[in-house]
Design a protein around this nucleic acid. Structure first.
Lengths: 295, 295
DNA sequence: CGGGCCGATACCCGCCGGGTATCGGCGGCG
DNA sequence: CGCCGCCGATACCCGGCGGGTATCGGCCCG
């Protein structure tokens, strides 16, 4: 399956073989064998490379999930063996003080195990959960794909637009989504790395992390929507202007759905209590969320 | 991993080997090798058998998920190859006319592919989705475990208590949960097969499907809660009495979260339209659900 | 104290998965 | 129009891994 995924992604036997560290003939044979076993053509061989058939598409999708599951099994068992800390993965550069408060709350629990905080690329957290590099993650709805995850809501916050502090709108109390879109339409779209880690071609500036993005914002070369709490980590020369009618961002603590270790359950329970108390403190309302949702 | 799961479940190398169709020594070696590779003790060997260590528990949980994913990859690819119909799995004996209506609606769509309806044991649907025996399932919240699935709500319905028609309560308009519990407390609990397909020991009658359950109910030997639409499939000598304060049952159409084929997407879209129109017809309200939820 | 159960070890074999060398077919370019 | 180069398939060889049988060592129980 690993072999098939490599060929399907590279669309080329030679490159796939190189990536796998084997030579091309055994790879060809392995794929042929797989096709025999499944009783179907997975690839359409052309003289310039390879194309996926319909069943090939299905197998690619399913294989990725399966390989992730196998990798997760190995990683999680290894961590359990070494009594290593839970791994909590967060978007690099998006670690507000709310997360610090949650970790403090957890650390002050009597039976809490240690937690290791791990940063990752933008949007990579879900992958980390699925392939076992992380046990639990901080995600932001509606941006992240919650498929196959359970989660508990930590907080809701409005979105702000990030602008250079000398920008016309920078001193306003709030703007609208329409104004934000109009503003962004005048600027080239920054290009983020895709799921494969490679930055697509295009006119805009290439951006790899939040630091580079902030540099562009400060130069007036782009603008961006972010949850309000990002003010904690903003450069001084960037203004954050509330966007009145943008949908709110929900920060959630998420973990893989297919079974939960005691350590994860404990952290989640703490997070639910913590979210409830901070929300009560902030508004004095009865908590209406804070229960785990299966997604 | 398959080997490890077998040993972990049997708690006995000899029986596990028999189940796997190999002899015991290679199995021992394979597990030892796995322990070396992961750098940890997975099993505690005693002279009477085998016990799981903490990391063993982790690996068992993760391995089950991984093996299901692999099996699913094979089955789904095979089905895609043969241009076979979508498999829709339902609880055996729980096929109300609502499902028939949904299938009719789908069949009358211009581009709808064929759908094969497959019955399964009680509570087995989720497993079928995870290991690829089914593409899509009818489930009932809050009974079924939605972890790792996406779903769309089809209908909500109150619960009814199933009683023999000669029972004292059988002619009442409604009863309460408290009354139902009191009633059930006087009767032995029927024993259902567990996840492993084996019926646990105990005092109550052993029950394997809804037919046997109905026979017991009609004899006054047990009682049961069910969604109201089960009246469609009830024997004539069983009364269904509404339970006023029981939580409503939500019927959902669910599918694996990690990626959706066109055929599944099409069925889901039809189901959403269908649910909305039937709900509108029933109540004349604006539809407040019907959007796919990622769980 | 002895027998039987259970997992581990020793040892052998066949085949699967890897390697190199080479072929066949198709596109593109001179 | 024909040749060259790229790409996947085939042929053939080898080593190691995964399977088998025979047997051992330790523990519980009678």
């Amino acid at each position: 399956m690993q072999y098939f995924v490599a060929v399907a992604e590279e669309r080329h036997f030679g490159r796939a073989a190189a990536r796998l560290g084997i030579s091309q003939p055994p790879l060809s044979r392995a794929i042929r064998l797989l096709e025999r076993r499944l009783g179907t053509e997975l690839l359409e061989r052309t003289s310039r490379g390879v194309r996926l058939t319909t069943s090939g598409e299905v197998l690619l999708r399913e294989s990725r999930a399966a390989l992730d599951a196998v990798a997760a099994a190995e990683r999680r068992t290894r961590r359990a063996a070494g009594a290593e800390p839970l791994v909590l993965v967060v978007k690099a550069g998006a670690t507000g003080r709310a997360i610090a408060a949650l970790l403090d709350a957890h650390a002050s629990e009597p039976e809490a195990g240690p937690v290791r905080l791990e940063p990752c690329g933008v949007g990579e957290q879900v992958r980390w959960l699925h392939d076992g590099r992380a046990d639990v993650a901080i995600l932001h709805l509606p941006h992240d794909e919650m498929a196959g995850l359970e989660f508990v809501e930590l907080s809701h916050e409005p979105q702000v637009a990030l602008l250079a502090d000398w920008h016309d709108h920078a001193t306003r109390d709030a703007i609208t989504v329409a104004e934000f879109d109009a503003l962004r339409a005048t600027l080239p779209e920054p290009r983020w790395p895709g799921a494969d880690g490679v930055v697509p071609d295009g006119p805009g500036p290439a951006v790899r992390d939040h630091g580079q993005l902030q540099a562009l914002v400060a130069l007036g070369q782009t603008t961006w929507l972010a949850p309000a709490s990002c003010r904690d980590v903003l450069r001084a020369d960037i203004a954050a202007v509330p966007v009145r009618d943008a949908p709110p961002i929900t920060t959630v603590l998420a973990w893989p759905a297919h079974g939960t270790s005691d350590a994860v359950a404990h952290l989640v329970a703490t997070a639910m209590r913590h979210a409830r108390t901070t929300r009560d403190a902030a508004r004095g309302e009865a908590a209406d969320t804070g229960s785990a949702r299966t997604s």
